[in-house]
């Protein structure tokens, strides 16, 4: 684990992006050749309202060093109100994770619209930077131990 902390270490970050805004935003970032670190792995979801805490925890359990959830800006949701529900859910969830000792920067939320390619690249850089500062995740990672006890 110590070697991993070296400069060259790239975190793995799972990004849940909504189909209508944030995924298109990431697409635009690519098309427009905005540079951002290769640490982001994108999972496309229909809406940020679709993302449940189960999914975020599952990403961490499987070894992700960080999670990013992004949807349309409030008021712009393709399904009218999906991101409003998500906003409440994640507000509680993020506070709860911090309460039990998960670093706040592990799990990040943002709004990115389809026209914000540059902003997406910026957020990707920012989140990578934050997760890098924390180092590899270990708190909720499941290890398959060879033989317990």
């Amino acid at each position: 684990m110590e070697e991993k902390r070296e400069e060259s270490w790239q975190p793995k970050i799972i990004a849940f992006l909504c189909n209508w805004c944030s995924y298109a935003g990431a697409d635009l970032a690519g098309v427009s050749r905005y540079q951002y670190p290769p640490s982001i792995r994108i999972v496309r979801v229909p809406c940020s309202g679709r993302v449940s805490p189960n999914m975020i925890l599952d990403a961490l359990r499987s070894g992700a060093d960080g999670v990013l959830v992004s949807g349309c800006h409030p008021g712009d949701c393709h399904y009218i109100s999906g991101n409003f529900y998500a906003r409440r859910r994640f507000a509680l969830f993020k506070r709860f994770l911090e309460f039990i000792g998960i670093e706040p920067d592990r799990v990040n939320f943002t709004w990115i619209s389809a026209s914000e390619g540059e902003q997406f690249a910026q957020v990707a850089r920012e989140v990578t930077e934050r997760v890098k500062r924390l180092g590899p995740a270990r708190k909720l990672v499941k290890e398959i131990e060879p033989c317990p006890q």
Partner: peptide, 25 residues
């Protein structure tokens, strides 16, 4: 119930704003 509804002005200070720096922990 609170998670089955929402308000337009619900707090969202946890949402990452572009250009905002993370806290050093």
């Amino acid at each position: 119930l609170p998670l089955t509804t929402f308000k337009l002005e619900d707090p969202q200070d946890y949402i990452l704003q572009q250009g905002q720096k993370g806290e050093e922990k």
